[in-house]
């Protein structure tokens, strides 16, 4: 019994499944477009960054620490740190790619996002169908609308000539504040690592360290604390292993 692992039907299912997600990611894309315009990027540059990187969080963080001239090391390093979370996702989806080769494998991996990963885990729970075409369809639709949203945000900021105190510039920060809500698992688990992350980030900034160091040091300190607290209670491994 050979189950197909990349079908046109799967692609169409993915396109349909991703449609509601577009509503959630569109304001995010607008925020990235506004931030890109605020930092002086041209429309072409904003679209190129969005098409090739296709990672909203990383793009916002990189734009946040943008300087003149463009900060090569800081932006690339921060992007790497923010996107590191996608490495275990790709590994966790290995079963979906068992019989997929060539461009289908490498392009589908290139379109991987948090949302696609979440949809895949839900789809996997529902049925046996592990069709990489589904992942490709989800990624493709989100990618297309990502470009539209970033372009629209850039155009909006261009047309309205926003002052730095304009409320729209709060949108990028709002994205991250909102993302904290689904990540919060409870006081006992998260209060200490999150508190440490905030304290270290603020201290690093107070000490005069420029970006991306406050972000980097805070994130690593918090994650290391969470990982260290997990280690002694090793009898019951929490969460599924990446596979």
């Amino acid at each position: 019994m050979v189950r197909p692992s990349f079908t046109g039907q799967g692609v169409r299912r993915g396109l349909r499944a991703a449609l509601p997600l577009v509503l959630g990611t569109f304001p995010f894309g607008l925020a990235v477009g506004v931030a890109a315009h605020g930092k002086g990027l041209s429309l072409l540059e904003a679209l190129l960054m969005s098409g090739l990187t296709f990672a909203g969080t990383a793009q916002l963080v990189a734009l946040e620490l943008w300087t003149e001239p463009a900060p090569l090391l800081a932006a690339v390093f921060a992007t790497f740190l923010v996107n590191l979370r996608m490495a275990p996702m790709g590994a966790a989806l290995a079963a979906w790619f068992e019989r997929v080769r060539g461009w289908r494998l490498w392009v589908t991996l290139g379109l991987l996002t948090d949302q696609a990963y979440a949809l895949a885990t839900v789809a996997q729970r529902r049925g046996p169908g592990r069709d990489a075409g589904f992942l490709f369809g989800v990624g493709l639709l989100l990618w297309l609308f990502w470009l539209v949203a970033v372009g629209a945000g850039h155009g909006l900021a261009e047309a309205v000539r926003l002052r730095p105190s304009h409320p729209l510039f709060f949108a990028p920060v709002a994205v991250f504040v909102a993302l904290l809500v689904p990540l919060w698992r409870g006081l006992r688990q998260d209060a200490a690592p999150w508190g440490l992350a905030a304290a270290v980030a603020l201290a690093a900034r107070g000490a005069g360290l420029g970006p991306p160091w406050p972000l980097l040091l805070g994130a690593l300190a918090g994650a290391a604390l969470a990982a260290a607290r997990e280690a002694p209670a090793g009898e019951a491994p929490p969460g599924p292993a990446p596979r």
Binding site: L179, A198, L216, G218, A219
Partner: peptide, 8 residues
């Protein structure tokens, strides 16, 4: 979690 906190 810590990453977003350190950003915010």
């Amino acid at each position: 979690g810590p990453l977003f906190v350190a950003y915010v």
